[in-house]
């Protein structure tokens, strides 16, 4: 046993040092390749600048032919982010002739996750007839959920996204929590409003998804009747109820004031916080009394939002806040005076 410990340690240390020596040599070779690629990249960038200016496609193709397609793709990704309109179109046409979409399709099939994500974003820059097929392919069959979401986002930008149910089936429903999904919902076409509304009502769907759907709906003004938010405000999932109250405040649904006031006493503090903020946004001075009660809430964030809401209620709210700052109970008084003095020189 003791000899084994010693012998094994010698073998392992010899192997590890040998591997390290090989890696150092590999790095020497890689450094030379990187230098070549950096030079190629510099030439490609210069050629693209010239192309955008004088539209000489042949000159660009001659330079691109001498560089590897991956270096061209890399440089084009950066350059396309800098140009717009006609110039961008000219560069895309030249890249099309240089065979970039074929390279990107290969990347989509064989690259690792980051390369596939990158290729999804790059191929979406091309005309829909070039981009839609590969993007649908990724949405339907990629093994990474991040790549599927990225493909869905790009398809939504182009305006050819499948129905929401199918989209969620493709992306994967279970354990879905990515904030990028909220971004995707926001990009869905107006026709998807009914599907998003249905999703908000789907009780077995994760709260995160339903709240994201509500957010996408209120951000697109007038897409659905405000009644959908009123309905969701009664939901038993706090995340959904909070999102709906936020929506009612943001769209300025004045008739929802009684509902918002009733939620000021919700057991979940995030719901109370959204309710009091929404009341402030509606700006009805009659709500000042109810909002004042929340200056004594056990949660600081709710107290702070209540004080800010009072300021939003105009002169009546501000006067109420000043009165509380002078006469209220300890916690109320402190919150009011702190918020009134916010940003003032000490």
């Amino acid at each position: 046993m003791l000899v084994l410990i010693w012998t094994l340690s010698l073998i392992l240390s010899a192997i590890s040092i040998l591997v390290m020596v090989i890696l150092v040599l590999r790095r020497v070779v890689a450094a030379r390749r990187e230098e070549r690629d950096a030079e190629s990249r510099r030439r490609i960038m210069t050629a693209m600048i010239c192309l955008a200016h004088d539209k000489d496609v042949d000159a660009f193709l001659a330079v691109a032919a001498q560089a590897s397609t991956s270096v061209t793709a890399d440089a084009s990704s950066e350059f396309l982010g800098l140009v717009r309109g006609e110039e961008r179109e000219a560069v895309l046409q030249a890249l099309l002739r240089a065979g970039q979409p074929d390279f990107l399709e290969r990347e989509l099939k064989r690259g690792d996750e980051v390369r596939r994500l990158h290729a999804v974003e790059l191929i979406a820059a091309y005309a829909p007839d070039v981009a839609i097929g590969p993007l649908r392919g990724r949405l339907e069959g990629d093994r990474s959920r991040e790549v599927r979401i990225a493909a869905a986002i790009e398809l939504a930008k182009i305006g050819t996204v499948p129905p929401l149910g199918e989209l969620l089936d493709r992306i994967g429903y279970r354990g879905q929590r990515s904030r990028r999904l909220a971004e995707l919902f926001g990009l869905l076409p107006e026709q998807s409003a009914a599907e998003l509304r249905d999703l908000t009502r789907q009780r077995d769907a994760p709260g995160f998804l339903r709240a994201s759907a509500l957010e996408a709906l209120w951000r697109r003004d007038g897409l659905v009747e405000p009644s959908i938010f009123v309905e969701a405000a009664e939901d038993s999932v706090p995340e959904v109820a909070a999102a709906s109250l936020r929506a009612l405040g943001r769209i300025g649904q004045r008739t929802s004031l009684p509902l918002l006031l009733s939620k000021l006493y919700h057991p979940d503090w995030e719901v109370r916080m959204e309710a009091v903020e929404a009341v402030g946004r509606l700006g009805d001075p009659d709500a000042a009394k109810a909002v004042t009660d929340l200056l004594d809430d056990e949660q600081w964030t709710v107290r702070y939002k209540a004080a800010q809401s009072l300021l939003r209620l105009g002169p009546v709210g501000e006067a109420t806040l000043r009165t509380v700052a002078l006469e209220g109970t300890a916690r109320k008084q402190r919150t009011a005076s702190l918020v009134l003095s916010e940003g003032m020189p000490a």
């Binding site: 046993m1 003791l2 000899v3 410990i5 010693w6 094994l8 340690s9 010698l10 392992l12 240390s13 590890s16 040092i17």
Partner: peptide, 14 residues
Amino acid sequence: FLAFTALVFTYGIV
């Protein structure tokens, strides 16, 4: 002694 040396020095290197 060798086993201890292995654990402290050579495995440390590994």
